[in-house]
Computed example of a mutant assay.
Amino acid sequence: MKDDNTRAAVFMLVGSSAFAVNDTFLKLLGTDLSAFQILAMRGAIVTCLFGLLVWHSRITFAQLNGRDRRLLLIRSASEALAAYFFFNALFNMPLANVTAIIQVVPLAVALAAWLFLREPLGWRRLSAILVGFCGVLLIVRPGGADFGAPSVFALLTVAMVTFRDLSTRVMAKNVPSSLVAFTTALGVTLFGLAGAVTETWVVPSPVAWVWLSGTVIFSFIGYYLIVLAMRTGELTFVAPFRYGALLSALVLGWFVLGEWPDTLTFVGGAIIVVTGVYTLYRERRYKLRMAAATSTNDA
């Protein structure tokens, strides 16, 4: 398990950073194309790439049991909505701000797992989660001059990603990561195509094709590594490494986009990271105690 956790941590760190690079390309691409067109074009290419992996694994959607098929559909729908909300937030907010808000996902997943999966949640972790959500409020600042639709889209993204991660969490271990990624990418593509038919299709410029290629490459890497990380190691050990995306977003936002967050955003982001790591640390301690108690009882 130790080796699995180490590999999973590397997968999560690299995958999260890949998404930060992908988000940078998306923000650049958003000046030329709509969210639906980007979802459709990028999704079609990524779906084909994952389709090759699924073909290699020789496992199809029809071979899964009914429960796992439903979970894959839920995951795909959640990812499609998350992508749409995220694009609309990203195109209208600084990259680091959006990324910092997304970092509350581990806290939201822990809270949702307590509410819907009946997983235990002590008062320390619950307090940390509430403090973490206060960090989000420092970034979005409801009622302030900067609060608007983009902030709402960012919060909706968190909700959809939480549903996505919960569905992955309860999925059977024998479902190949390539199939999970393929069905998710396909769902996003179909959603993008459905929305794109209501808009005027724009022929991408040569520069836009470069940005689009970047999103394809790095979203492919991010998709696969994140799924692989969550299915290789313990979630409580692996999840904190997703915060590498925030550091990557800060650097890329500064050097590529000329953005730098204000003080409150830094404070809010720091609160989210600290409470997120603490929450996962407490969850890991609880599981170790439970494992030790089970071992003692068996003896």
Rank of each mutant, 00 (worst) to 15 (best):
F163W: 10
A270Y: 01
A9L: 06
A185K: 04
R164L: 12
L225R: 05
N88H: 10
M1K: 11
A239F: 06
P261N: 07
D165C: 09
K287H: 15
T232F: 04
L257K: 02
G222A: 11
W123G: 00
V227L: 10
I226E: 07
F220I: 04
V238C: 03
S213P: 09
Y281N: 11
V238F: 02
W201M: 11
L95G: 03
G233M: 01
F147V: 00
L29T: 08
R7P: 00
L166D: 11
T24R: 01
L137Q: 09
A208G: 06
A62S: 12
R69P: 06
L13R: 02
V131W: 01
V105Y: 10
A89K: 02
A110E: 07
L193A: 15
N297K: 15
T296W: 10
A128W: 00
G144Q: 03
F91L: 06
R282I: 11
L28M: 04
M41K: 07
L111T: 02
Y84G: 09
I74G: 05
Y278N: 07
G253S: 03
L49K: 14
A83E: 09
L193P: 01
S178P: 08
L52W: 08
F163K: 05
F241T: 12
A62T: 15
E199L: 03
V46N: 09
K173Q: 15
A9V: 15
K287C: 06
M171S: 07
T60M: 04
A112I: 09
R7Q: 06
A44P: 00
M230T: 07
P204H: 07
L111V: 07
G143H: 03
L280M: 14
G269P: 02
P240R: 05
I139T: 04
P120I: 00
D298E: 12
L90N: 09
T279W: 06
V238M: 06
L64S: 11
V277Y: 03
A270D: 02
T296L: 13
V140E: 05
F91A: 14
T215A: 12
V202I: 15
P120R: 10
L247V: 14
T275A: 14
R242G: 08
G253V: 11
R75A: 09
A77E: 07
G43N: 09
E199F: 09
M41G: 05
A291N: 06
F147K: 03
R69G: 00
I221Y: 02
F237S: 08
F237E: 13
V203T: 14
F191R: 00
L246N: 02
F218E: 03
L155Q: 03
